[in-house]
Design a protein around this nucleic acid. Structure first.
Ligand code: FES
Ligand code: FES
Lengths: 144, 144
DNA sequence: CTTAATTAAGATAAGTTTATCCTAATTAAA
DNA sequence: TTTAATTAGGATAAACTTATCTTAATTAAG
């Protein structure tokens, strides 16, 4: 469904959100250990999220990644997915036609569009705070 | 959402279904021309569908691909998707955890599972006949 | 100012998916 | 039985995704 890159965007973001709520910056090393992902590759994705102003990085000693506490609740999953995988997941044809088009639909268009839209709505209505809270209470997990 | 291979499984199947309803066998050449896909690669996917007994092939002169008329309505999209992409699309964790598990869920599990199940239901409740009929009436398209 | 810690970024490698090419096997028709 | 048409299948290549490695840039602390 999502690319590995996208997964390595979402899981770290949740982990960073959780820690930022507790006032702690985290390093790529700690992140990849906690979410069980390849460190250098994950760091690359984090760079992209920083460029997209979804997370903040602080360079140099005692630096790391963080998210402004008061922004955590307003960051939607859709922003992360779009920053990494683009919006093709929202707009692309399920059968691979060049464009998904009401006036030139593929045979699966009506049915596929419904599900694609639900996915979109879900991602747009899910924010980092709610995901981070479940992690904190040990109800959900980010690895294995 | 689906891999290219899967798209090259679904679109040809619809095209073959439409033609089989009309009593015509089709060749990989005709198929890839009509659905605008790479011929050799598409042929490979067709081989896999034949091995999975979803479509029939007739070798030799005047051969080609076809589907038994009375089976078209009973072939579900889910069969094609599973034959090519496997069932990971139905069961895999949205955030890439090794297993999607009720007892060890990722933060997105509840919301993701809903959508994944809807996709599954949709594919299981869509058969080749209905898709082929829309093509035939010119209401839907398989290329560009 | 120097040092040590840390993110950024580019180069490279490995792995997977997508695509092409060539030959073998099969079969209907002449 | 020969021929021409056609699918099957293996080998290879190209493209893309995923992953690693090395160096540069930045910054807090001493
Ligand atoms: S045209 Fe295929 S999903 Fe809309
Ligand atoms: S555990 Fe992630 S979707 Fe179920």
């Amino acid at each position: 469904m999502f690319s590995k890159a996208c997964e390595y965007g979402i899981r770290p973001s949740i982990f960073i959100a959780k820690n930022s709520r507790e006032g702690r910056r985290v390093s790529p090393k700690e992140i990849s250990a906690e979410i069980n992902s390849p460190q250098a590759f994950t760091a690359k994705i984090l760079q992209a999220l920083v460029r997209n102003q979804i997370i903040n990085s602080v360079k140099g000693a005692y630096g790391g990644f963080e998210i402004n506490k008061d922004e955590i609740a307003s960051i939607k999953l859709s922003q992360i997915v779009e920053a990494i995988d683009g919006k093709k997941i929202y707009s692309g044809c399920g059968l691979g036609l060049e464009k998904c088009n009401e006036n030139h639909p593929c045979p699966l268009h009506d049915k596929f569009k419904l599900i694609r839209n639900e996915l979109k709505t879900m991602l747009e209505n899910t924010n980092l705070e709610e995901l981070a809270l479940d992690i904190k209470t040990g109800m959900t997990f980010l690895k294995t």
